[in-house]
């Protein structure tokens, strides 16, 4: 009975949403702010990837808010799991086999290079601090998957995270002091499409990448160090 009412609810909601979707301007959605950004974005910001221009320049303060949400989530995970740390006498997961251990050693440098490349080229090609940061976190977590007894150095992770977050805010305040707008692009735009272009955007994306990477690596390491429940 409960399942039937739930299905009825979900079906009704689906019908409602489809009716709403039928009213949407399919095919030629009107762009209000997007048109302006597409028109003047390349000259005003200097980034070839306009999504990066929106993320870091036009909506930079949103990104700062997003980083604080991520920080709150990571801190919450640490707080909730703080009392469930695996004790020294408890057995960790068994060590990975030869394939996992060899692949972890082999892939670690490659993943770090790929992550840094994606972070550094965020203003030119698809990618950026969020994607690259996640790949960096995966690179640092992969050895832990093979050797569950080890753990990341949480002090270093916290320092990287704090310094990166501070750098993001400091660059924003610097722009506020010089140009009068928080996170306004600075340092000259350079040639469109070259690595050293778009002013402070690559610096901001490096800060975002380090912060996201440190947060997610710390989060996964905390989960890894949690004791297993008795079945």
């Amino acid at each position: 009975m409960r399942n039937f009412t739930s299905l009825l609810f979900a079906g009704g909601l689906g019908f409602f949403l489809l009716v709403l979707a039928a009213d949407l301007p399919v095919g030629a959605a009107p762009m209000v702010a997007g048109e302006g950004i597409l028109g003047q974005g390349p000259e005003a910001v200097g980034a070839a990837n306009l999504v990066t221009a929106v993320v870091l320049a036009y909506r930079g303060i949103d990104t700062l808010g997003e980083l604080s949400i991520l920080f709150a989530a990571a801190a919450g995970v640490g707080l909730i799991l703080s009392g469930m740390r695996r004790r020294a006498d408890q057995r960790p997961d068994p060590e990975g086999g030869f394939i996992l251990l060899a692949a972890a050693d082999l892939l670690f440098p490659l993943l770090v290079i790929v992550g840094l490349y994606i972070v550094l080229h965020g203003h030119l090609t698809p990618g950026g601090g969020f994607q690259g940061g996640v790949i960096l976190a995966a690179a640092f977590f992969l050895p832990l998957l093979g050797r569950p007894g080890d753990s990341l150095n949480h002090a270093v992770v916290n320092w990287v995270e704090g310094l990166a977050g501070g750098a993001f805010v400091l660059i924003g305040l610097w722009a506020l002091a010089v140009k009068g707008d928080f996170l306004a692009p600075m340092l000259g735009k350079g040639a469109l499409g070259s690595l050293f272009s778009a002013g402070t955007l690559p610096l901001l994306y490096i800060a975002v990448g380090l912060k996201v990477g440190a947060e997610i690596a710390g989060l996964m390491s905390t989960l890894q160090e949690t004791e297993a429940a008795e079945p």
């Binding site: 390349p42 306009l50 499409g193």
Partner: peptide, 8 residues
């Protein structure tokens, strides 16, 4: 929304 070689 990515410019190819600086052109739209």
């Amino acid at each position: 929304p990515i410019l190819l070689e600086g052109r739209v």
